[in-house]
Amino acid sequence: MGSRNTTQFAVVLLFILGVESIIAFLGNGFIIVVNGHRWLQSTKMLPCDLLLTTLGTTRFLWQSVVMTSQFLNICSPGFFCQSYLWEIGFGVFTYSASASIWCGTWLSVFYFVKVTSFAHRLFLWLKPRIYGLVPRLLGLSLTVFSFPFAASGLRVSNYCNSVGNMTGNASQGEENNYQFWIFSPLHFTFITINVSICLTASILLLISLWRHTRNLKRSGIATKDFNAQAHINVVNSLLSFLFFYILYAVAFTTSLGYSPRPDIVEGLFADIALSLCPSVHSIILVLTNPKLKEVCIRILKIK
């Protein structure tokens, strides 16, 4: 009876993961297609569109790996866990997830610099140069920061594969300890950097919005102007990304304790939590971006 209930619960979780994946594919695919079509027409891409396109591409790859690995794990768990497919999938997942997080971080910084205005020297130096810095920061993050992250993930995979052939509780405990020992320092370093950048941008953005609203009230102008609405859109984007990123970090760190996953329910729980960021946040990006929102409304009206 317990096994039957577990199977039914796993089916429900698999359905939820499937819905999340559909949302992720549609949302990120929409961002890629719209910006790609605009790039083909004008033969150039603005930094904001470049960040959104790269973010959508990495998240599309991220969700594809999650669904493929879960499908293979259900169909043939023994073959999947003992083959190189799990190692390759884990390496691709760690790279796409790390690249996606960095893209989201620099997108938050770009939105913040573009919308706000401060009298600080560093901000005044950064504001006119942000368009040129975005491609460089993006390329630096995708190569220098993301590749070592994926390489560490592959080292964990290779070790787990060798230890997985051993028997006994001692080997399993050694496997879990090794995963956290080799992967956690790099993982938490990236988490600290990204969360610090996003949190700083969010706090400064809220300060800028508060100052702007206060000045409007003092001058007797209506508070709902274009600049205030732009502030609110960016605040929604930054805070939602920060929330889903923290949720991803917790879920990913937890999932290291049972890789490759022996329990399908635990694996589904982890994948559902990991998939919230590329699915829900992509919809928020579409709704808070005027160009993407306009195209989305136009398509929905046609259909």
Rank of each mutant, 00 (worst) to 15 (best):
T94Q: 04
L55E: 12
V11A: 15
G89C: 09
R129K: 14
T94A: 13
S3Y: 03
F79Q: 04
F9P: 00
G27C: 09
S275A: 15
Q63K: 01
Q41E: 14
H37V: 07
E266Y: 15
S3R: 10
L276T: 08
T254M: 14
N161K: 09
R155A: 13
N177Q: 14
S21G: 12
I182F: 06
F71M: 09
V115G: 04
Y178A: 08
V11C: 08
P47E: 08
A251N: 07
V295W: 00
I191W: 01
S96T: 13
L209S: 11
G78P: 02
A251F: 09
L256F: 12
T253P: 00
N165P: 00
L205N: 05
W125L: 13
I191P: 00
S157W: 03
V33M: 06
L238I: 15
W39N: 03
L46I: 04
S69C: 15
T192G: 06
W210M: 13
S3I: 08
F9G: 07
S240L: 13
T105Y: 01
F60K: 02
L126Y: 12
S3C: 07
H231I: 06
Q229C: 12
I302Y: 12
T213M: 07
I23M: 10
V12E: 07
T7V: 13
N236L: 15
T105V: 12
F269H: 14
K224Q: 05
F110L: 11
S171R: 07
K127A: 15
S202E: 10
T200K: 02
V34S: 01
S157V: 09
L300T: 02
K293L: 12
L239T: 07
S219E: 09
T167G: 05
I299C: 02
D263G: 05
G2F: 10
G91V: 14
C75I: 09
L142T: 05
H187A: 12
I197N: 04
Y131G: 00
N177H: 09
P128E: 13
Q179G: 03
K291Q: 08
L72V: 02
S100L: 02
C296N: 05
F123V: 05
F118P: 00
E87P: 00
T116M: 15
P185C: 12
V19S: 12
I74M: 11
K224A: 11
N194Y: 02
F79G: 00
I203A: 09
L17Q: 11
L46D: 08
I297E: 02
G220D: 00
S240R: 01
N5P: 00
T43A: 08
Y84W: 12
C277S: 14
I297F: 07
S42I: 04
S171Q: 10
K127P: 03
H231E: 07
N169I: 08
I297M: 03
Q8C: 03
Y159K: 15
Y95F: 12
K301Y: 12
F123K: 08
V109R: 01
G168T: 07
R298L: 05
L51H: 06
